[in-house]
Amino acid sequence: MPPTERYRTAWDGYWEASSGAPGEPFWDADPALTAARDLTLLTPHADPALPIVDLGCGNGTQTRYLATRFARAVGVDLSHAAVAHARRSDPAGSAAYEQLDLSDPEGARALHARLGDTNAYMRAVLHQSDPADRPGVVATLATLLGTRGRALVLEPTGEAKTVIRSVAERPGGPSAKLRSVFTHDLRPGEVAEGEIAALLRGAGLDIADEGALTLAMSETHADGTPVALPARWYLAAPTAPAP
């Protein structure tokens, strides 16, 4: 089975077994802890009149928040089941949701043709893609930005595995949220240090800024605080043409 089909099958299985409720997935933290904070890194550089695309939107929790800050928000996901959940969770239609294979250049070009240049939000997507597919995912990001868009890319670092392992090994074993990840064979890979920067530059994007932060999960520790994964963020912009 080709890699994309393997993880499409895995993600559809996961989302089909899910209710789609906000907070049910291990990573699906409240937007107050995620997109709201993250946009403080993006909005100083981005034109709010442009649409924003949430790449790997899942059930649309973050997409719905993005729709309150940009002229238009579109969530895209590899999984048809995820997109169906996102649409059901947004009866007011504050955002739009579409199925998109991020490694498919034709799909990316078609979406850009409909939306024009966009901003983009991509939270913890690349490590879920096989290494061979990552250049294609970042190429889609570049296609969507066009010449005017800006992107915020956030990815866990290698240290995140240690945090997840500690959660899995708590007394009583993994929580239901984490067991569901294991059951459906969602394989979080590791993005090597420097790989994201190289991928962005290889797709014709400049890194306008970057830094370290943590990604809040919906999973909590025994004291009720959110599990947080060490991560890095990148503010990407199309490379300006040479004068």
Score class of each variant (00 low, 15 high):
M1N: 13
T4Y: 10
E5R: 07
A10M: 11
D12K: 00
A17S: 10
G20H: 02
A21T: 07
A21N: 02
G23V: 02
D30R: 02
D30C: 01
L33W: 08
R37C: 11
L39Q: 09
L41V: 04
T43C: 07
P44M: 08
P44A: 05
P48W: 03
P48Y: 02
V53H: 11
V53W: 15
D54Y: 06
D54N: 01
L55N: 00
G56H: 04
C57T: 08
G58P: 03
N59K: 05
G60E: 03
G60L: 06
Y65N: 15
L66S: 05
F70M: 00
F70Q: 06
A71Q: 09
H80S: 12
A81S: 04
S89V: 07
S89N: 14
P91S: 06
G93D: 02
G93L: 12
S94P: 09
L102W: 14
L102S: 04
S103V: 05
R109H: 13
L111E: 04
H112V: 01
L115E: 06
L115P: 09
N119D: 11
A120Q: 01
R123V: 10
V125Q: 10
L126D: 01
Q128E: 15
P131G: 09
A132V: 14
R134L: 01
V138Y: 05
V138F: 02
A139V: 11
T140S: 08
L141F: 01
L141W: 01
A142F: 00
T143L: 04
T143I: 15
L145Y: 01
L145Q: 02
G146C: 00
T147F: 13
R148F: 02
L152P: 11
L154Q: 09
E155V: 04
T157C: 00
T157E: 03
A160F: 04
K161T: 15
K161R: 11
T162H: 12
R165Y: 11
S166K: 14
E169G: 14
P171E: 15
G172H: 06
G172R: 01
P174E: 09
A176K: 14
A176H: 08
A176R: 14
F182L: 09
T183H: 05
H184V: 00
D185N: 11
L186D: 07
R187Q: 13
V191L: 13
A192D: 02
E193T: 15
I196Y: 10
I196N: 14
A198C: 05
L200A: 01
A203M: 10
I207V: 02
A212R: 15
A212L: 09
L213C: 05
L215Y: 12
A216Y: 12
M217H: 10
E219C: 10
T220E: 12
G224K: 08
G224C: 06
T225Y: 09
P226M: 00
V227M: 06
R232V: 07
